[in-house]
Computed example of a mutant assay.
Amino acid sequence: MRTVAVWWTVPNLVTVVRLALVAPIVVLLVRGGPPLVAAALAAVFAATDWVDGFLARRLDQVSRLGERLDPVADRVGIGAIAVALAVAGAAPWWVLAVFPAVDVVVAGVYAVRGRGRRLAVARIGKVRTAAAMVGLFAVMAGLAPGLEPLLPVGQVTLAAGAALHVGAGAVYVRRMLRGPADPQRGPPRSGHCAKSPMRV
């Protein structure tokens, strides 16, 4: 699968839409808006994480911008929504510290030992993202009258996502510390950002 140089691709547009959804979700949570509306937008946010990768493969539009923009959208979205939930008193603050702390460590190791590498996405990283997004959705839905039992379920799932984030970070750090970077490693085989070096 080729990697296109242009940025105006359909998958990238979907990723931008995902980023654009973050602001209204945060505003709804912080201002006490309808939680089910926020949860519905969060569901769309989560779905686009799969849609952009599917379209990139289907349309053969894997791009370098997409490789970098997709994980940024995930990080910004999950982090901002988690902060909004914490401000609303619906999520524990310690979860907020885990995600950026791990990202800083991985980024630091990558800057020293990872340049030139293209690391395949670890299975634990995929499970982590799924757990975090499901947890966020369940917490938001649990704020709605009649759906309160979903709140603790979502909190536990979100905490599990944070724990998996630590595990995923450890996997990538270990890979980068194994040996020198391999500049001959080829481009991503598939996916919108399936082998983005900072996709953890």
Rank of each mutant, 00 (worst) to 15 (best):
R174P: 01
A88C: 05
G114T: 02
T3M: 13
V166R: 01
G116S: 08
G89L: 11
V51F: 09
L29D: 06
W50T: 07
R199T: 05
V26A: 03
A101H: 06
D60I: 04
A141W: 03
P11H: 08
A40M: 09
L55V: 04
L96E: 07
I25P: 00
G114A: 04
V22K: 00
W8C: 05
L177F: 08
R128L: 00
G167F: 10
P197C: 11
V166S: 02
V166A: 13
M133E: 15
D52N: 03
A162E: 06
L96I: 15
V4D: 06
R31V: 00
G142I: 07
T157V: 15
A141K: 01
R75C: 07
H165T: 15
V105P: 09
R31N: 11
T15G: 11
M198Q: 12
P11T: 04
V44W: 02
P197A: 12
V27E: 04
V83C: 09
R175P: 04
R68W: 14
L59D: 10
F137R: 00
V30A: 10
V95T: 15
I124Q: 13
A39F: 07
V87R: 00
L21I: 01
V139H: 02
A88L: 06
S196W: 09
P180M: 12
A39L: 07
A111F: 10
R118K: 14
L147Y: 15
V10T: 14
I124R: 14
V171L: 11
A91M: 15
D60H: 14
V30E: 01
G32L: 00
A42F: 06
A162P: 10
V156R: 13
V26I: 02
A101Q: 02
R31H: 10
V109L: 06
R64E: 14
A43K: 01
R185A: 13
F137P: 00
D70H: 05
R18N: 12
A73N: 08
R75N: 10
V14T: 12
R31G: 01
S196P: 01
R199I: 03
V72G: 06
W8P: 15
A138F: 11
D182T: 09
P100S: 09
L85N: 00
T3P: 03
L151P: 05
I78T: 13
P71C: 06
L147G: 11
G125E: 05
D182I: 07
R185Y: 03
G66L: 10
G114F: 03
L85G: 00
G191A: 04
V134C: 12
D182G: 06
